[in-house]
Design a protein around this nucleic acid. Structure first.
Lengths: 227, 227
DNA sequence: GCAAATATAATAGTATTACTATCGAAATCG
DNA sequence: CGATTTCGATAGTAATACTATTATATTTGC
């Protein structure tokens, strides 16, 4: 398994980067330390100058890999979506019952990330934190349409489509499969954020991962799956 | 009605502004033209300098009203939440059946805003656009906790609580009333945005307001209300 | 109706951000 | 071993996000 994992490299849309960060130590450093620093400072306060200082390099060198911090954030978000889709594929393989496949997929979409999956050099726990707080800034911006044309959101779309397909397998007549999936994905991010910062906007239940169980119940009741 | 409306002024938490913008023509201009310009440029590209130029004033004068553009956005968002709550109160008055009250509330939370309600000098259609695209930036930021302590999100919380109370009236044992409400509010924003920019992440249906009908159905099925 | 208080325009200035350009040394690749 | 790529170093620009000061209007209080 270790071996299998180490061979995996996600295809990130080349238009997010100027130079493939996985092609050099510096690039890997930019991504790795970038994640750490975005978590520490928040995306608004994060700059390439600060990152360059942290990795003992120069601003100009960082700019050789990414056009802007927005592009770096897009890169990270795409990595995350790829990773999610990969986990969903793995988690639904060889399971004949689509209801169980859906439940597993929703778990992937909503569950808290556990420490150190040793999957790659990317720290998935921190990346998940970034995605929760910052990922909507990747599309809620003036450049959406342009970025969309460049393919920035392809992985996200394919992820949504994949889960929507499971829903349609269960309920072919369900009218809103994509809405349901994107509501769950974005909703889970919001609920995790609210739990940490604005608890009155969510519900926390002891000894339960309320976010995951809420969205599983939500999907089941939408599709009238009784438990 | 005209008369009644013109008397209404929402209480905005004073810590969002340095000087009450409703206390002067300049302040009103800042808010009104600010809305227009944020819609035109997007929040990231919007600056106080540009706003000052548009209203033939100076950057320094704008700063006398708001500490930063983030504060202006918070002000606008609070205004929107107040307005939403007001509409929900009106829309649920004197209706004994909580199921109908909930449906009306969800309509307020999710429906597209119609042209020119003539409610105030604020352009609600444009404000709604801003809220859809930018409002999450008001809390998805490093200063959440500080802003929360200052009361920036009180109206949002009371709005969520108000609708959650209707839910609990219908289903007192329902475990996730706040999650359901905030999922609907945030979800509706996302779905409207996706419909405009990333349609594969949502579902659009001819001659139907898919967003509203999806979330009404969602709530009903969550609470096992049959139609 | 005038003094006092307040509001604003005008100007100036700072630190930081978000980049771009150039150059030479070092590493690597063929 | 020579060519190319990579990177660090330095420099510079335009814009952003503010703060401070002063002089002139305007309002208000008496």
């Amino acid at each position: 398994m270790q071996e299998l994992n180490s061979k995996i490299e996600f295809k990130i849309n080349p238009s997010v980067y100027k130079k493939d960060p996985l092609s050099s130590d510096l690039g890997i450093n930019i991504v790795e330390q970038g994640i750490d620093q975005i978590v520490e400072l928040g995306f608004e306060n994060f700059t390439f100058k600060k990152l360059a200082q942290r990795i003992n390099s120069t601003e100009a060198s960082v700019y050789r890999y990414f056009e802007s911090k927005h592009h770096l954030l897009s890169y990270l978000t795409q990595w995350y979506w790829n990773w999610l889709e990969y986990r969903i594929v793995i988690g639904t393989l060889n399971i004949p019952d689509p209801k169980i496949r859906l439940e597993n997929a929703i778990k992937c979409l909503t569950e808290e990330i556990k420490e150190d999956q040793n999957f790659s050099r990317i720290n998935e726990v921190k990346l998940h934190q970034i995605v929760i707080t910052e990922s909507s800034k990747v599309y809620m911006c003036k450049s959406v349409d342009e970025n969309n044309a460049s393919g920035f959101y392809q992985v996200y779309k394919s992820l949504v489509q994949r889960v929507a397909d499971i829903i349609l397998e269960i309920s072919p007549k369900f009218k809103y499969p994509h809405m349901l999936v994107s509501t769950i994905i974005e909703g889970a991010h919001h609920q995790r954020f609210f739990a940490d910062h604005l608890p009155r906007l969510t519900d926390q239940i002891e000894n339960e991962d309320a976010v995951t169980s809420f969205y599983i119940q939500l999907a089941n009741r939408q599709l009238r799956i009784e438990k």
